[in-house]
Amino acid sequence: MTDPPSHHRKPRVAIVFGGRSSEHAISCVTAGSVLDAIDRTTYDVIPIGIATDGRWVLESGDPERLRITGPDQLPSVDGERAPIALLRETDSTDLVVHEPSQPPQTLGEVDVVFPLLHGPWGEDGTIQGMFEMAGVRYVGAGVLASAVGMDKAYAKIVLKAAGLPVMPSVTVSAREWYRDPDGVRHRVADLGFPLFVKPARAGSSMGISKVHGPSELDAAIEEAHRHDPKALVEQAAVGAREVECGVLEALDGTPETSVPAEIRIGGEHEFYDFAAKYLPEEHTELDVPADLPDEVATELREMAARAFEAIGGEGLARVDFFVMPDHSVVVNEINTMPGFTPTSMYPRMWAATGVDYPALVDRLIRLALRRGTGLR
């Protein structure tokens, strides 16, 4: 484990973003917001981009380059920039840049990594395991919590075991769908229609379809399998309100919760898809805080903290709920690295709770600096 940073210099924070998943662009947008907000008088910041082919590079860190400017103008990491690597030394982990025809340049010890990665190879425990092996502190959930939170099928198992209500579902592997499609259709029919089909380990509503009847099922499963060989077929929460709650770890480890917020979908969207989430011209209303009866809001916040602890969460998480027409509350999913732009739900909920965006960024970094690597 690396020692805490010396009081003679600022802590060095590596902002890691991009990645190989389908959420590469959203990770870049998130990183741009954090780079814009982080206090450079307190922290020495190194922007590290992971290109779509997996190359790690020293990025420019220009927040303006990391914005969505239109449906076909999504930001991405420039994989042609100078390669960068984490180098584990005896008592530290250093950042090393490899410029063509130049000797390696050491940027110095990295004290904490802020992995602003969404989806597989970033939010699913894989990169967290690499940081553990490198002995470097990092923001957010550890290996197991990240993996469980990313896999919607396993998250349901864990949440249900903790006594939290979840929607009924069926998991369909690509192998099972290839071998016995009729058997899958029979199992799914027991859920009734409408239902949702989604990749088990993707985010940003990638690959999700609403299925109104049996004739739409095959195409929906194949679309989900295009993103992930494991698909989740889930009973639709008919008439439910979509409400979210942020969890933020206190310095003593206690999970604190934000005021809940509601998503109201407008226009032609039947659910909270990619366009409704990220494109500014779409008709989506975010009510922060949500207009809920006090007892429902209290129950929802308590369940958010329970979900966070059930998966072994650390740092932050966003817990998504369905509030049914009878005001009962069902956990939809938990996200261990939620969207993190100032206009994303997680920061907006905390701003409404009294923690603004720069303070949120600072709190998460300080939590990571206090936490060691390895078993804890």
Rank of each mutant, 00 (worst) to 15 (best):
residue 2 T to G: 00
residue 5 P to V: 05
residue 5 P to K: 08
residue 6 S to N: 01
residue 9 R to Q: 12
residue 17 F to C: 06
residue 18 G to T: 11
residue 20 R to Q: 15
residue 26 I to C: 03
residue 30 T to A: 12
residue 30 T to Q: 00
residue 31 A to V: 03
residue 35 L to P: 08
residue 36 D to K: 13
residue 38 I to Y: 05
residue 40 R to C: 10
residue 43 Y to M: 05
residue 45 V to T: 12
residue 46 I to E: 00
residue 48 I to A: 01
residue 52 T to I: 01
residue 54 G to I: 02
residue 58 L to G: 01
residue 62 D to C: 11
residue 66 L to C: 11
residue 70 G to I: 11
residue 70 G to K: 04
residue 76 S to G: 13
residue 80 E to T: 15
residue 82 A to C: 12
residue 83 P to W: 04
residue 86 L to D: 01
residue 86 L to W: 02
residue 86 L to H: 02
residue 89 E to C: 07
residue 92 S to F: 02
residue 93 T to V: 15
residue 99 E to W: 13
residue 103 P to Q: 13
residue 106 T to D: 11
residue 110 V to S: 01
residue 111 D to K: 06
residue 112 V to L: 06
residue 114 F to W: 06
residue 115 P to S: 12
residue 118 H to C: 04
residue 121 W to N: 15
residue 137 R to M: 08
residue 140 G to P: 04
residue 140 G to A: 09
residue 144 L to F: 10
residue 149 G to R: 02
residue 154 Y to L: 13
residue 159 L to M: 15
residue 159 L to A: 02
residue 161 A to E: 14
residue 167 M to A: 15
residue 172 V to M: 06
residue 174 A to N: 01
residue 180 D to G: 04
residue 181 P to S: 11
residue 183 G to R: 08
residue 185 R to P: 03
residue 188 V to Y: 04
residue 189 A to Q: 13
residue 191 L to H: 10
residue 195 L to M: 14
residue 196 F to I: 07
residue 203 G to D: 10
residue 203 G to W: 12
residue 204 S to R: 07
residue 206 M to A: 14
residue 206 M to K: 11
residue 221 I to E: 00
residue 227 H to T: 00
residue 229 P to M: 10
residue 229 P to L: 10
residue 230 K to E: 12
residue 234 E to S: 05
residue 237 A to Y: 11
residue 238 V to D: 12
residue 243 V to F: 09
residue 244 E to Q: 13
residue 245 C to Y: 05
residue 248 L to E: 09
residue 250 A to D: 14
residue 254 T to L: 05
residue 258 S to I: 06
residue 268 E to D: 15
residue 268 E to C: 00
residue 270 E to R: 13
residue 271 F to I: 07
residue 272 Y to A: 02
residue 277 K to N: 08
residue 282 E to A: 10
residue 282 E to C: 03
residue 282 E to G: 00
residue 291 D to T: 14
residue 294 D to E: 15
residue 294 D to N: 04
residue 295 E to I: 02
residue 302 E to P: 00
residue 305 A to K: 02
residue 314 E to H: 15
residue 314 E to L: 14
residue 320 D to R: 06
residue 321 F to V: 03
residue 322 F to A: 09
residue 325 P to R: 10
residue 328 S to E: 12
residue 332 N to K: 05
residue 353 T to L: 08
residue 356 D to T: 12
residue 356 D to P: 10
residue 357 Y to K: 03
residue 360 L to K: 05
residue 365 I to K: 05
residue 376 R to N: 09
